[in-house]
Amino acid sequence: MSDDTPVVIIVEDEPDVAETYRLWLESDYEVRMAHSGDEGLDELDESADVVLLDRMMPGLSGDEVLARIRERGLGCRVAMVTAVEPDFDILEMGFDAYLCKPIKSEQLVETVENLLERSDYDDLLQEHYSLVEKRATLEAAKSNAELADNDEYLATKERLKELQDDLSETLGGIESDEDFIATLRGLDDPEG
């Protein structure tokens, strides 16, 4: 697989379940497995894009692993996998998504795709902002006449327009509540 293939880490103590997830994902992603929370933390590094994290495991629980991931400032997206429907307000939690067992193949694939799209959105948002700053700086420094044939300014405006379009197409323009809250949570805590 190429270096651009997204990396998914499965942290799940039941080997059969973990193996099933791997089979569903391995054609599109580089999949790594960890059979406990501790192993999961060893496996995690900057290359990880998505983590599927079982909530109930012997040793380190899913919640504890999540806390360590956030502490280490890793940029990966974390989907919590639970055996029961969570009884807390999912919007308030630090997870990016949750899945209830038993998970169906298409559900898992959709969740991973959505989480990767959120990362794309965040990257676009960062690039967009740096150009917004640049445009404001150029506009402050130069007159309208100077701007009209300033190549750097015109290129900045052009690229901003492209990014606007990309942003409104990504995540369906933030149509879902989950995507909206998760994106704002990312702004609240840029390290997380």
Binding site: Y129, L167, G172, I174
Partner: peptide, 17 residues
């Protein structure tokens, strides 16, 4: 201002949908 700008942008997208 970066956070405020991005907040406005994300909110705009939400209101758009």
């Amino acid at each position: 201002r970066k956070t405020a700008f991005q907040f406005c942008h994300v909110l705009s997208s939400r209101f758009d949908s």
